[in-house]
Amino acid sequence: MTKRAYRTFQSLLLALLGLFLLSRIWNGSIVFYINRRFVILVLLAGLGLMAISQALLRSRPGEEEHEDHHEMDDSHEQQEHPVEHASFSGWNLAWMTVPLILGLVLPARPLGSVAVANRGMNVVAPLFFPGADQTVLIGIPPTQRNILEWMVLFEQAEDPDEYAGESADVTGFVYRDPRLKPGEFMIGRFMLTCCVADALAVGMVVSSPEADELSENSWVRVQGEVYAYWLGEQKIPAISAVSIAPIPEPEQPYLVP
């Protein structure tokens, strides 16, 4: 690969990578991967990559000759073995095509119940996360609380039964937890602090005569009455469903505290 071609290829890849990041923001699928708090950083990086790509293209051949030399030869041995050098350069760039290929070939999909099977379903809320405070959560009308908020309330309550009878309205995906009985399923969401690498599944039990007809991983909205469910030694939040309605996957599939 000549230096000129190397530089052009580099520039092209940077531009594609920047475009890829920006397109994920544009079509909203960026939230499948990271907490929306960090989207601004990705936006800046996308723009920055494209700017660098432009700057590379504009660097004039005459001037860049030696810079090229200096920067591409990352150790002496590469200078002495041009063949090695060439292969190094090519592969060096090829790695960056991996995210592009994976991102473009496979459709963007958020984590679902398959990931729960690997990560386990948490029925007890993680003790802290930003904003986990009983006093604040009690202020939220019961039908506006999400799964995580119910879990935190149950976790922090002296007697979770005090919430029994309140009406709940939550959305999530259907997960068949082996710990549950027929007529029950888990309504789950992933909670994201940073990116999907740290996603934790959280869920509430739903009991309903329709429970066994729902297909796994489909999104539902469950309305009903809250009660405390004994799972092993713990009282966890559960809903006795009045209505279960199938819904399309939300644009923000994760809970992002």
Partner: peptide, 12 residues
């Protein structure tokens, strides 16, 4: 999804 999650998060 996990790969892209880590990658996109770290790229900036």
């Amino acid at each position: 999804t996990i790969f892209l999650g880590i990658f996109i998060e770290a790229v900036p």
